[in-house]
Design a protein around this nucleic acid. Structure first.
Length: 898
RNA sequence: GGGCGAUUAGCUCAGUGGGAGAGCACUGCCUUCACACGGCAGGGGUCGCAGGUUCAAACCCUGCAUCGCCCACCA
């Protein structure tokens, strides 16, 4: 397309899909495990198959893609392993809802048929998030895409389970666990979210067995659970009650006599009445207290697995049971309170806030529930995992998260890994119907290992979803097979994730990786923020505040969206995303696009640049630009190496917009308008096109699409090849091009230009109106230098005539500016309103006086002069002199204006 | 109860001991031949509050306030 026909605004939609499919077809995402280059590997935190791309995924994937693209261009053998998680409970819930819509449920279908249904669902909808990642530009190796329930990973899961079992690190036992009555399954501790809720504290009288006139008052938030009480606890040192220890109370509404026990851990002397009802089957603290007694307290279950009151609780009066059997606990609470009230046993109630545990998947209130479950014994696994971080073999970025990690790991509890659902890795354990023995095996078994009996039935529970995710860094690379991928890419280079799954996932990967691979799973853990909306609210469908990444990509382009996320990555915890910000970076993309158009308009289609970026024909501006480019390369490289994504983004933004576009494109115009064969023109064209080409490569990791689109339009000779920018080398700074003299000289010219522009702006001189300028310089060398480059000043400051010399005089009625080593005058007569200018000067002088006073004070401080570093004192002294000089000049100015 | 983080311009946020910054928004001038998704210039801040350390504090220390998050068994 001829340059003239390139649209004036960049249109992302027209190019993004095109380049993505070309890259993919060219195999640029695929890693070659045989290649002999430094490996660099990231495994994606596998999104749930049920998920669709939200802001968190977008940020997460963008940061990974930036690193992967950067390392790939830098020559590493990069592998980014993608995949999805089967998300046990979440996925089962989704499919169950679907079934409900068809007026059926999983029990009608049966286990096998239901699992088939889930697989069908996965086949139809599970790929959604993958295609969305592609929209974002993610350069994952799709040929290596994995799923936590695919064949290889399932084998890894069984291998790990069996080995841990054989090592005694997995055990089965009846314990009090968190139970979601709605999902109908056990949950691990961290799958329970606690929320503060308003409730009531009920004071209930328990009559002593030997004398019903003496009543012990207990306080509870859950009076209904008294039906499962098997003791009342008091503090052993409590003078009010200590003599009662060993006696019994008659539990109201039942025929049960329960002991009064002493327990200093359970009972807080300050709280309530100092007497606590103990319900070991329905409360974690009570369970522990029960275990502390010898013999342990009996556990009486009073709720079923749906959270309803049992109809056959031992000892409970039939008339009471009749009123509450089968009703949910919360309903039963009111009924029991009412009955107690009628019988005069409810002393009082108080308002009371307490935290309630809820299922992290469905927000249903969880119940402590006594049931047989499988557990991982975590303490022996945690120890090496703690050491790996302590000794710095694994580093968290930012470092502060290591404390969070240590805190949890040092207090880790055994991990309940069994779930009473159907979708997931079924636990590879078989129970013998004859001898009751358990056979745990890698292969399905037909006979009991203990007695040889053939009545074996496999455990119906499946494993916690996070069990398989814990193996992700090595299972995706082929473990337990000894694959070349595993040998090459493990340990992976970095894990990019959000803080909310440090416990769920990061910690467990470290434990499993160390245990099964004998090596850390990743060297760095980069923890990024959680994305919230502009008000700082967590995005959720119910609040209607969800910003859909795909809508943003559609509206502003994937590049602008990615750049925004990179620019926001600095925040440790939260990102409050504002769409205006994305719009700003959409404008940035457009700016780049038009810089490209400008370059193409000013070079020939077959343009071939000078072999050296800088030649004797190069101008000051050329040398300045070449030098600044090296600085930009260094900045971006350093920022990426330290995961300072926002710094990389802002360096690029500033360099491209404010140095290349604002200054260099303007500075190059005079040279470009020289004759076709002028060497100065060719030199400028060379810098123009090669700087463009270089910063496109520098920007590619963050903005892959627009950089490829523009790069492909650069003449082949100027970009050194016909391939893809994605596969071209990342820029390397060339120290020989760093030219501090040029930077300093250019700064002088820029200062002069800025000074004149400033005067024009202040005086409201319209852009079409040319001005004259007189520059009085300190020495001849400066005069020469400025004279040589006065063309820049004329063009960029719209000056018609410039006089430069050591003995120039300030003309009557002119504005003054002070620049380093020179004074600059712009005659104002005939251009502006002189009276208004006088006012302005007076204001300016007042402001300067204030600053001067401040600096003088500082510089007359003896301590400061003695103890501050010399450079600081010098700098401040110079600053003060400058300020004073400026004030003097303004004062003279004012006089001259009359 | 323990811990972590935040508090800087109207908004969203960078900035960890020596000149208060960016983007957006705002004001003025300009459709000048890359770009009005633009150019040039400008206004705007007691860096949450109070102490302390220091020659020097947005930055270090102490306390407080407000907001947010995480962990924990207060019935």
């Amino acid at each position: 397309m001829p340059v003239q026909e390139l649209p004036k605004t960049y249109e992302p939609k027209a190019v993004e899909d095109k380049w993505y499919s070309l890259w993919e077809k060219a195999g640029l995402f695929h890693a070659d495990a045989d290649a002999d280059r430094r490996p660099y590997c990231i495994v994606i935190p596998p999104p749930n198959v049920t998920g669709s791309l939200h802001m968190g995924h977008a940020l997460n994937a963008t940061l990974q893609d930036i690193l992967i693209r950067w390392r790939r261009m830098s020559g590493d053998n990069t592998l980014w392993v993608p995949g999805t998680d089967h998300a046990g409970i979440a996925t089962q819930n989704v499919v169950e809802r679907q079934l409900a819509g068809q007026n059926t449920d999983r029990h009608q279908l049966g286990r096998e048929r239901f699992i088939e249904k889930v697989w069908e669902w996965k086949k139809e909808y599970g790929g959604k998030i993958i295609s969305q990642l592609k929209k974002l530009g993610a350069s994952c190796d799709w040929q290596r895409e994995r799923f936590t329930m695919d064949e290889g990973l399932s084998r890894a899961v069984r291998e790990v389970f069996v080995r841990l079992y054989e090592e005694g690190l997995i055990y089965r036992g009846e314990r009090l666990i968190n139970w979601c009555p709605r999902c109908h399954t056990a949950l691990s501790d961290i799958e329970v979210e606690h929320e503060e809720e308003k409730g009531k504290l009920y004071y209930i009288a328990y009559p002593l067995s030997h004398d019903a006139n003496i009543r012990l008052t207990v306080a509870t938030t859950r009076p209904e659970t008294m039906l499962g009480d098997t003791a009342v606890a008091v503090h052993p040192l409590d003078p009010r009650y200590k003599d009662l220890i060993g006696r019994t109370v008659s539990l109201p509404l039942t025929d049960r006599k329960i002991p009064i026990i002493g327990d200093s851990i359970l009972v807080d002397l300050e709280f309530g009445t100092g007497a606590v009802k103990v319900t070991p089957a329905h409360d974690f603290n009570d369970y522990e207290a029960g275990m502390r007694q010898s013999p342990p307290l009996p556990r009486i279950k009073m709720l079923d697995d749906k959270g309803g009151v049992l109809s056959d609780i031992p000892d409970v009066h039939a008339d009471v049971l009749k009123q509450i059997a089968g009703r949910p606990a919360k309903k039963a609470r009111g009924v029991i309170a009412e009955i107690l009230h009628k019988r005069g046993l409810l002393i009082k109630t108080e308002e009371h806030n307490h935290s309630i545990g809820k299922c992290y998947r469905c927000k249903t209130v969880v119940e402590p529930y006594l049931s047989p479950q499988w557990f991982v014994k975590t303490a022996p696994l945690a120890q090496p995992a703690i050491e790996a971080v302590e000794k710095g073999r694994i580093t968290f970025i930012p470092r502060g998260w290591e404390n969070t990690y240590f805190e949890w790991m040092r207090n880790i509890k055994d991990w309940c890994i069994s779930r009473q659902i159907w979708w997931g890795h079924r636990i590879p354990a078989w129970y013998c119907g004859r001898c009751g023995g358990i056979t745990v095996s890698r292969e399905d078994v037909k006979t009991c290992r203990a007695c040889g009996g053939e009545e074996v039935r496999q455990e119906t529970d499946v494993l916690d979803t996070w069990f398989s995710s814990a193996l992700w860094p090595f299972s995706t690379l082929g473990w337990p097979e000894k694959t070349k991928e595993l040998a090459l890419y493990y340990p992976t280079s970095v894990l990019i994730t959000a803080f909310d799954i440090i416990f769920f996932w990061v910690a467990r990967m470290i434990m499993m990786g160390l245990h099964f691979m004998g090596e850390i799973p990743f060297r760095h853990v980069y923890i990024h923020a959680i994305v919230r909306d502009a008000e700082g609210q967590k995005m959720s469908k119910s609040k209607g505040n969800v910003i859909d990444p795909l809508v943003m990509i559609e509206r502003y382009g994937a590049d602008a969206f990615r750049f925004t996320l990179a620019a926001f990555a600095a925040q440790g915890r939260d990102i409050k995303l504002a769409t205006e910000r994305i719009e700003g970076y959409r404008n940035f993309a457009n700016k780049i696009w038009n810089a490209g158009r400008f370059v193409f308009m000013n070079i020939e289609n077959d343009f071939s640049p000078n072999s050296k970026l800088i030649t004797p024909d190069s101008s000051l501006a050329d040398r300045w630009m070449a030098s600044r480019l090296q600085a930009a390369i260094k900045d971006v490289e350093a920022a990426l190496a330290e995961y300072r994504f926002n710094d990389a983004a802002s360096s690029l933004y500033h360099f491209i917009w404010h140095e290349y576009c604002d200054w260099y494109l303007e500075l190059s115009k005079p040279a470009l308008s020289l004759g076709k064969d002028a060497p100065g023109r060719k030199a400028a064209q060379t810098v123009l096109v090669r700087t463009l080409e270089t910063f496109l490569r520098l920007l590619h990791p963050i903005m892959p699409f627009i950089t490829e689109e523009i790069w492909q339009r650069i003449p082949e000779q100027a970009r050194g090849g016909s391939g893809y920018i994605m596969a071209s080398p990342f820029p390397v700074p060339d120290d020989r091009l760093i030219d501090y003299d040029a930077e300093q000289d250019m700064q002088m010219v820029m200062d002069a230009i800025l000074a004149i522009r400033n005067i024009r702006g202040e005086m409201n001189i319209p852009p079409t109106q040319h001005v004259n300028a007189i520059i009085k310089v300190e020495d001849k060398k400066l005069a020469e230098h400025l004279e040589q480059n006065s063309g820049y000043i004329k063009t960029l400051a719209r000056a018609k005539d410039i006089r430069i010399g050591t003995d120039e005089k300030k003309p009557h009625a002119s504005a003054t500016a002070v620049i380093k080593g020179a004074e600059l005058f712009v005659p104002l007569e005939g251009l502006i309103d002189l009276a208004a200018e006088r006012d302005r000067l007076r204001k300016e002088i007042a402001r300067l006086s204030k600053d001067i006073e401040m600096f003088s004070k500082k510089l007359s401080n003896k301590d400061f002069l003695e103890r501050a570093p010399k450079a600081v004192v010098e700098k401040d002294t110079m600053k003060l002199d400058e300020l004073k000089a400026m004030r003097e000049k303004l004062e003279r100015n004012l006089k001259m204006l009359g």
